[in-house]
Amino acid sequence: MSTDAFAASVGKGAALQNPRISEALRTGIIFGVIEAITPLIGWGLGSIAAEFVADWDHWIAFGLLLGLGSLMIRNGLRAEKAEATPVVRHSFWLLAATGFATSIDAMAVGVSLAFIDNNILITSAAIGLMTLLMVTLGVMIGRLVGKAVGKRAEILGGLALMGVGATILYEHLTM
Rank of each mutant, 00 (worst) to 15 (best):
S91V: 04
L133H: 00
A108Y: 03
G69L: 03
M72I: 05
M140F: 11
S103N: 08
A96T: 02
I120W: 02
T102Q: 04
N75E: 15
A79G: 00
S103L: 11
L129Y: 08
L144I: 11
I127F: 12
T102N: 07
A96P: 00
A114C: 10
A82C: 06
S70L: 10
L77S: 11
A148P: 03
G99D: 04
T102K: 05
A114V: 10
S103Y: 07
G76R: 11
A84V: 14
R143Q: 15
M140Q: 05
N119G: 00
L121V: 12
S91I: 12
V135N: 03
A108H: 04
I73W: 04
A82T: 03
V88M: 15
I141G: 08
A148C: 01
I73R: 08
V135H: 06
W93D: 03
V149D: 00
I120E: 02
G146P: 01
M107K: 05
I120F: 12
H90C: 02
I73D: 07
A126F: 12
P86W: 06
F100V: 05
A114H: 14
L121E: 11
T98P: 04
I120L: 09
A148Q: 08
G69T: 02
A79K: 01
I116Q: 14
S70D: 05
G99W: 06
I122K: 13
I116N: 14
A97C: 10
A108D: 08
G76C: 03
G142F: 02
K147H: 08
L121R: 13
L133P: 03
A101R: 04
V111I: 14
G110W: 01
A84Q: 14
D117S: 15
T85N: 13
A148I: 03
V145F: 12
L137H: 04
G99I: 02
L68Q: 03
K81E: 15
A148D: 02
F100P: 04
L137V: 15
S124L: 11
I141H: 00
L77E: 01
H90L: 14
L121I: 11
K81L: 14
A82H: 10
M107V: 12
M72D: 05
E80N: 07
V139Y: 00
F92H: 01
F115Y: 11
A79I: 04
M134H: 09
L137D: 02
I127E: 08
V87I: 14
N118P: 07
R78I: 05
G76A: 07
L68C: 13
A101N: 04
S70Y: 10
E80I: 12
I73A: 00
V109N: 03
A97K: 04
L94P: 01
T131N: 10
L121G: 15
T136W: 06
R78F: 01
V88S: 11
K151N: 14
N75V: 00
A114G: 13
I104A: 02
E83P: 09
I73T: 01
R89K: 13
D105F: 00
V111M: 12
W93P: 06
V139P: 02
M140G: 01
N119Y: 07
L132D: 01
T98S: 10
G150Q: 10
S70E: 00
L71G: 07
A97E: 05
I122P: 11
L113Q: 12
V149M: 03
